[in-house]
Design a protein around this nucleic acid. Structure first.
Lengths: 137, 137
DNA sequence: CTGTATCCAAGTCGATACTG
DNA sequence: CAGTATCGACTTGGATACAG
């Protein structure tokens, strides 16, 4: 028995296979709006309404937000609660699973903020190098 | 002075703004092939050649792999080393920054594997619900 | 307010052919 | 082997209009 948290080599390889079930999960998570929705919901102490999310996530369109929320709901990461009032009120919150996923996306978002400046510098340097491929000597 | 690792509320909101520099970082990371390339390189004890990556990442095309590697190299996450042999040999490895990013993507990939079954079940349940929206009573 | 339904532009991606 | 170039199918995403 192996109680060490190492993954078997075979499992590691299977991860990258086209038919590995995790692929479909990655395709939902590895998406800009999914990442931001999960992160925003996780940071919020209470559920967020559709309009709140739309205003919060600068640049998201109604269509993409709806699409993203549906996909997350379908995967059991987000709960959609409709209050039969008029006008309608719809709240989104994370399931337990979604909360765990949100922890990962929040880590990515935080990391991006922390290293944005350095990466922008690397980008500028790379682009400068490309413009002048033959340094004088 | 606040030494607590909490982010200021203003910073949190800025995260979602269209012009926040972190947006460009997220757009590179929140991508299926970026995630897999970083994860594969991080799991490998030694640099990987272009062809190794292509064979490992089932379904990636030459074009997408090149594109992804260039983007990661531009951002300073990946180092590209060309050996002037014939035939040419090109190796890719992670920079220190890329290694840190790879830790995050590996976490996502692992999480996806661990929860793929549950998410597939949630999906099936959701789809079944959609097919039969009016449960008999 | 919270969506759904279109239409259309722009980008993604894959297949193929070719180069150093 | 490791790319670059190109074309075309397909998908994504945005704008707009409209509905419950």
């Amino acid at each position: 028995m192996d109680t060490v948290p190492h993954r078997a080599a075979a499992d590691l390889l299977a991860t990258y296979r086209r038919d590995c079930p995790s692929r479909t999960v990655v395709e939902v998570l590895a998406n800009k709006w999914s990442l931001y929705v999960l992160t925003a919901l996780r940071r919020s102490p209470e559920p967020l309404r559709f309009g709140q999310l739309r205003r919060l996530l600068d640049g998201v369109t109604q269509k993409m937000l709806t699409q993203t929320l549906r996909a997350l709901e379908r995967d059991g990461l987000v709960t959609r609660t409709v209050y039969p009032t008029v006008p309608p009120r719809v709240e989104y919150s994370l399931t337990e699973l979604g909360h765990a996923a949100g922890r990962l996306t929040t880590a990515v978002a935080d990391w991006a903020v922390d290293h944005a400046a350095g990466i922008q510098a690397a980008r500028a340097a790379f682009d400068a190098r490309s413009d002048e491929p033959l340094p004088a000597r």
